[in-house]
């Protein structure tokens, strides 16, 4: 099924969760924040939050800045 991650479309398997997506992207959960359809997903809920077709995800982290 298709979702949008950071503005880009992405195919994911049915039954995927936030946690499985992060593993697929090799992103450590400790370094990011995830927003699903404009709502923040808390870290303890990554494993239990299933993704649906059409979900818009924003995965952000800290970068250099002043």
């Amino acid at each position: 099924m298709e979702i949008v991650v950071n503005g880009q479309p992405r195919e994911i398997a049915p039954g995927a969760t936030v946690a499985s997506l992060l593993r697929e992207l090799t992103l450590p959960a400790t370094r990011v924040a995830v927003e699903r359809n404009r709502e923040i997903v808390r870290k303890p809920e990554y494993e239990s939050t299933a993704l649906s077709a059409g979900d818009r995800l924003e995965i952000v982290t800290f970068v250099g800045g002043g």
Partner: peptide, 11 residues
């Protein structure tokens, strides 16, 4: 240089 460029990468 290191760091973000203005609005680049904003969610």
């Amino acid at each position: 240089r290191t760091g973000c460029r203005g609005k680049e990468g904003t969610p």
